[in-house]
């Protein structure tokens, strides 16, 4: 079948609009001028070397990665049983809980960040790393619950019952039969949550403290003062990093179940 010309034109416009900014960014990170300009002149790896040598970025990157892994892991550990309870059982207040789990997606990030800040100053005066961890977990939890619920709903409860009838207690049936079949859902939830945490600005903005801050916040701070290709280089590195993480998750989660099953 031939694709109509008008459709092709629209498609290329959309692609240009979506990818254009990234391409410009990518290109600029190799330019030799001291400020962001387009088209950039020359070719250099100077900005990459500079970024990798800056303490403020390297430290913040480490914080961001650790935070993303920890909060995603915790949100998954809580999210899987929560999703299971929501999908499989009927109990009073279920509708309210479902609504509650969507609220952080609906509530603007700045409002959530401010609410968390008030909570941590007024009620629980935890150290900054713990604040960030708990704040991000709260942010990610609804995502993991949603994604895993969706894949649980596609899983026939009869399969689990069959396992129970064959002598498996509920929790064994869950671990050996349900969980392996939620692989795709867990993977999707992991990627979504990890990236959400890694990119988050509003929560981190309120909860960061002296010495402990995340990469997006550090980037914003830097951009307030400087406007050079450093940020472009850093962004290029971040895109590559994110792609690598997704690949890694897919490889490990995909591979382990093939070998284990």
């Amino acid at each position: 079948m031939r694709v109509p010309r008008s459709a092709l034109a629209v498609l290329s416009l959309v692609l240009l609009f979506l990818l254009g900014p990234f391409l410009i960014l990518f290109w600029s990170s190799f330019g030799t001028q001291a400020s962001l300009a387009f088209p950039p002149k020359g070719f250099t790896l100077y900005w990459f070397r500079k970024v990798l040598g800056m303490r403020m970025f390297v430290d913040a990157f480490r914080v961001s990665v650790l935070l993303a892994f920890a909060s995603t892991g915790a949100a998954l550990l809580l999210g899987v049983p929560a999703a299971y309870a929501l999908v499989r059982f009927a109990f009073p207040g279920k509708g309210f809980l479902e609504l509650l789990f969507t609220s952080p997606i609906v509530v603007p990030g700045l409002v959530l960040g401010f609410a968390l800040l008030s909570f941590f100053t007024a009620v629980a005066r935890y150290p900054v790393p713990l604040r960030l961890f708990l704040g991000h977990m709260v942010l990610l939890f609804p995502y993991t619950v949603r994604v895993i619920s969706a894949s649980l709903r596609n899983f026939d409860p009869a399969v689990e019952e069959a396992a129970v009838s064959l002598g498996a207690p509920r929790w064994v049936a869950f671990l050996r039969i349900v969980l392996p079949n939620l692989r795709a859902g867990v993977m999707a939830a992991f990627i979504l949550a990890f990236i959400t945490s890694f990119n988050n600005v509003p929560i981190s903005l309120f909860l960061s403290g002296p010495g402990v801050t995340t990469l997006p916040i550090q980037m914003l701070t830097y951009m307030e003062y400087y406007y050079d290709p450093t940020i472009a280089a850093l962004s290029t590195l971040l895109i590559l990093f994110t792609v690598a993480i997704i690949q890694l998750v897919e490889k490990t989660l995909g591979l382990s179940t093939t070998l284990g099953g």
Partner: peptide
């Protein structure tokens, strides 16, 4: 022993 309409085999 239980046998279901939609078989309910363990897909993995």
């Amino acid at each position: 022993g239980l046998v279901y309409q939609n078989y309910a085999l363990f897909p993995h």
